[in-house]
Computed example of a mutant assay.
Amino acid sequence: MSNLQIGLAIIGGLVLAAVVAYNAWITRQNAPRTARERPAPLPAADAADPVADVGERMVDPLAGRIDPVLDADLADTVPAALADALPDAAMPARREPAVALERRPGLDALIDVIAPITPEAEVSGDAVLAALPSTRRVGSKPFAVEGLSAVGEWEPPRPGQRYRQLQAGVQLANRAGALNDIEFSEFVVKTQAFADVLSAAVEFPDMRAEVARARELDAFAGDHDAQLGFTLRARRAAWSPGYVAQNAARQGFVAGALPGRMVLAGSQPGQAPVLSLTFDPQAAMADDPEQSALREVTLSLEVTHVPRSEQPFVQLRQAAQALAQAMDGVVTDDAGQPLSDDAMDRIGADLEALYDALDARDLSAGSPQARRLFS
């Protein structure tokens, strides 16, 4: 073999090696980023963190507790968490914190039709519970019965208690719309049947006035219902679910009950999550989630469910910007347009006006009444 042939063979080998190396580099760049690429430890737990006493080890993210819900009827609709969706190294052990259940908000004339019920004689809580209708809904609206306790407070009927006054109520409006004539009539029938079992007299308000009130409240709710979301999009390399979860955990997010959902807990027990972070649940449930490629995640704020005192928009903005910097992403609106600081400032000003309007109507964001109305 001549020197020329040897030289050409060497050059060819080098070119082939360079092509293989380049293809490997391109593959590496396009592969989803995984949690193992950033093994830096999570920050030390803050004493104010409601879940700070839980260790920072890495475990399955979908074994967490169910998100806080407003009433027991809604809780039945939340599916159980699916296990083994991500590898053990994908997420920290912290979970959406277990919280003491807040007392279910009582009937309120601001958002409920209320019918007073007067038994002929004092009745036991056990009798009241036995007489309750099988369902706690009238059409699409929640239905409830309360008794006046010995200390003068309205409460859900309890065994062992005795009541001389009762009241039944149905919600005037929710996201399904305003209470209509048919639903009001169903409320009357259901309440009258309950009262008859207890040999009690019931007084119903005027249907026309209550239906008109329901329509007005529904119109107000429709004009002031706000659910704000930012989309975080990958600039270059995609992300794995574990990589997203690891970076979100550094911003205080914990695993929710559903695949592809994390939440930022509020500062008070029983409070709705301040923010939620969601991504494709199919990616979270894949056989090998670390090979799933995510190119976007969504940060959401249920404005009417979170108290103004939590500064939720400030937290939303900070979380979005911090995640974008850490994950090499860009914050956009639903249409994919990047959100500038000026655009975010305008959104913040609009939200302040919304909070003012809700306060003026005694439906402050995060209040029990607002959470019931906007549900």
Rank of each mutant, 00 (worst) to 15 (best):
G139D: 07
D46T: 02
F143V: 04
L166V: 09
F230H: 09
A131F: 05
P241G: 10
R28K: 13
R236P: 01
L264C: 06
L294V: 04
V19T: 14
V54C: 05
P119I: 07
T27K: 10
D328I: 06
V99K: 07
E146D: 10
P157L: 04
V263Q: 15
D206S: 11
A121T: 11
G260H: 06
V331G: 05
I111Q: 05
Y163C: 04
A286V: 03
R361Y: 07
P133F: 06
D334L: 13
A100T: 14
A131E: 09
Y243W: 12
D206Y: 00
F279E: 01
E146P: 05
A324Y: 02
L16Q: 03
V138Y: 10
A52Y: 02
L198N: 10
V99Y: 08
L132S: 09
Q268F: 04
R308E: 15
I347L: 08
R94P: 04
R372Q: 13
L339R: 01
A293K: 02
L275D: 05
P289C: 00
G147F: 04
A85V: 13
R162H: 04
L62V: 04
V331N: 03
E153N: 07
R346T: 09
D108W: 11
N23P: 03
F187V: 00
L264Q: 05
F194G: 13
G169F: 08
V54R: 00
E216F: 05
A40T: 14
S124H: 00
L373S: 09
P105A: 15
E183R: 02
Q227V: 08
L42V: 01
A343C: 06
G12T: 12
D342N: 14
W154R: 00
S364E: 15
A349S: 13
A83L: 14
D53C: 06
R261L: 15
A176N: 13
S124N: 06
D333K: 00
I347F: 06
V303F: 08
Q315E: 10
L323N: 01
A284E: 12
V331Y: 00
P142K: 15
E122S: 01
A24I: 04
G329K: 07
A80N: 12
L299Y: 01
I66W: 03
Q5R: 14
P92S: 11
K190C: 04
Q268R: 11
A89W: 14
E352R: 02
A212D: 15
L62F: 11
R28W: 12
A173S: 14
A324F: 01
R136M: 15
Y243G: 09
R235N: 13
A193V: 10
A130R: 15
E96L: 12
V54L: 07
A335F: 03
